[in-house]
């Protein structure tokens, strides 16, 4: 969905969002909530400058508007792949963004992620995956890697991966797979403003992803294994 159309549907009562290249930031009103909006457009790769800018905007909201809800609208094909980004320490920039989002959550800002177009690997990891809750539009794309690339690297025949992905949500691209795995709480359809209002009203800082992934039979081991390590006496 086009970002302008998306913003109009999320914030029918009005929004002021400034675009600067692939970066966007601003505010909108959703029912009685003032919401800070930030993100990217154009399935952009996230490199050092963009990660820095996104983090700066999160920190600005924390400082200027204590407690204001934050909506992350990050459209990304993943981290930018370049020698320059690695030279400058892109992992540190991504970590900085992650820490900034975590700080916002800890200081009581409801943080909601909405994958409206594309989310891939590192760009998803350091942004919406650290939100309190993450949702997606049904037509969005979420992945780590395409199946042909995965087949090439793992040396597992593509036909094999394709056949298995019909039943397993564990490795193949797709919003439905991430929904089953618990990383996406639900898909937003119809009245998007109502979806956002409902998410904000029911927001808690408790991470439901593991429980959701288990209940939806997508990730049956993550919860129980972590629980055993947490509780095993063994000493």
């Amino acid at each position: 969905m086009d970002i302008h159309c998306l913003l109009d549907r999320l914030f029918p009562a009005g929004h002021q969002v400034a675009f600067d290249g692939v970066f966007l930031a601003g505010d909108g009103t959703c029912r009685e909530n003032e919401v800070a909006i930030l993100g990217t457009v154009g399935r952009t790769p996230i490199g050092v400058e963009l990660a820095h800018r996104l983090a700066g905007e999160v920190l600005r909201v924390i400082e200027r508007h204590p407690g204001r809800a934050i909506l992350l609208l990050v459209d990304t094909q993943g981290q930018r792949l370049s020698r320059r980004d690695e030279l400058l320490g892109i992992n540190g920039f991504m970590a900085h963004l992650a820490k900034s989002i975590e700080l916002a959550r800890r200081r009581g800002h409801p943080v909601i992620g909405l994958v409206y177009s594309q989310a891939v690997s590192g760009g998803f990891l350091a942004s919406s995956m650290l939100a309190d809750r993450c949702f997606a539009l049904p037509e969005a794309e979420i992945k780590v890697m395409s199946l042909p690339a995965m087949a090439r690297i793992t040396k597992i025949p593509l036909e094999r991966l394709e056949a298995l992905s019909a039943t397993s949500p564990v490795f193949a691209p797709g919003v439905d797979n991430f929904l089953r795995m618990g990383a996406i709480e639900s898909l937003w359809e119809g009245d998007l403003s109502a979806c956002l209002a409902q998410a904000l009203a029911g927001n808690t800082a408790v991470d439901r992803r593991r429980a959701d992934g288990h209940a939806r039979h997508g990730r049956l081991l993550a919860g129980p294994i972590a629980e055993r390590v947490r509780r095993d006496a063994g000493l």
Partner: peptide
């Protein structure tokens, strides 16, 4: 990569 989605989460 063999369990890419689970690994990313």
């Amino acid at each position: 990569l063999h369990e890419a989605n689970a690994g990313l989460i």
